[in-house]
Design a protein around this nucleic acid. Structure first.
Length: 238
DNA sequence: TTCCACTTTCCTGTTT
DNA sequence: GAAACAGGAAAGTGGA
């Protein structure tokens, strides 16, 4: 079923998000094409006559609403970062991060709750530093309060979702590198609904994990290592 | 309501 | 000089 909706099925529409293209160029002009858009005629002339940087909030909402009409969730999720960039220019990267973040949350809520419980059960059995009870106390965290290190771990374990923000330096030893520090902070900020998050603050939170053994120091910039009390990152122990 | 663990914020100083 | 790191201190947050 998923195969029936490949990128090629909507790629022909990705151009609609190019803000510099007119409605006419992209969609034609007949009202039949867009019966749900009451402002089609006005909008048509508007989109073609005013540069997007001069759009009002209302104009932006209209444009976004139109984009919403073009895609469903599955199509969006099937888009690659490159396609987002093609479709929305420099905003594409940001929109892509937001979408991936939302996807991760959704998957967490459906699958990872169960998986993590199993993971924690296994990890707690193996972890000497954290008692089973302490371990399960982490389970009280919901998506909103999920721990930073788990967020980082999950990002590392989902290459298609971390968009090159993080990468393994030595998977076997749990050493990873922050490639895009600002993007990481932005994603974490989105997760915590905190648009003031910065990498400086995020890194401070990461450094606190040194005390608890969840992370270990690596004397290299932007490089961290999972400690003995971090679980779920090992390939063969998931 | 209180406690606690965790995170955020701010800060100063150091290192790269 | 800028970016990143280190870590103290205090405040904020949310679950139990």
């Amino acid at each position: 079923m998923l195969d029936s909706v490949t990128p090629s099925t909507f790629l022909s529409n990705t151009m609609v998000c190019d803000p510099l293209m007119s409605w006419t160029e992209i969609f034609g002009t007949t009202e039949d094409d867009y019966p749900t858009c009451d402002h089609q005629t006005d909008a048509d002339s508007f989109w073609t006559s005013i540069h997007p940087e001069h759009w009002s909030k209302h104009n932006v909402c209209e444009w976004l609403q139109f984009c919403c009409d073009q895609y469903n969730g599955l199509q969006l999720c099937n888009m690659t970062q490159e396609e987002f960039l093609d479709a929305a220019g420099i905003c594409g990267e940001y929109l892509y991060f937001i979408l991936q973040n939302i996807r991760m949350q959704g998957e967490c809520s459906r699958n990872q709750m169960q998986n993590r419980k199993q993971l924690r059960d296994k990890a707690c059995m193996k972890t000497g530093g954290i008692s089973s009870q302490e371990c399960h106390s982490h389970g009280r965290t919901n998506l909103q309060s999920s721990h930073l290190w788990e967020f980082v771990r999950d990002l590392l374990l989902s290459p298609e979702e971390n968009s090159g923000i993080l990468e393994w330096e030595d998977r076997g030893q749990g050493i990873f590198r922050v490639v895009k520090s600002e993007a990481l902070a932005k994603m974490w900020g989105q997760r915590k609904k905190n648009d003031r998050m910065t990498y400086e603050k995020l890194s401070r939170a990461l450094r606190y994990y040194y005390k608890t053994g969840i992370l270990e120091r690596v004397d290299r910039r932007l490089v961290y290592k999972f400690g003995k009390n971090a679980h779920g990152w090992q390939e063969n122990k998931i």
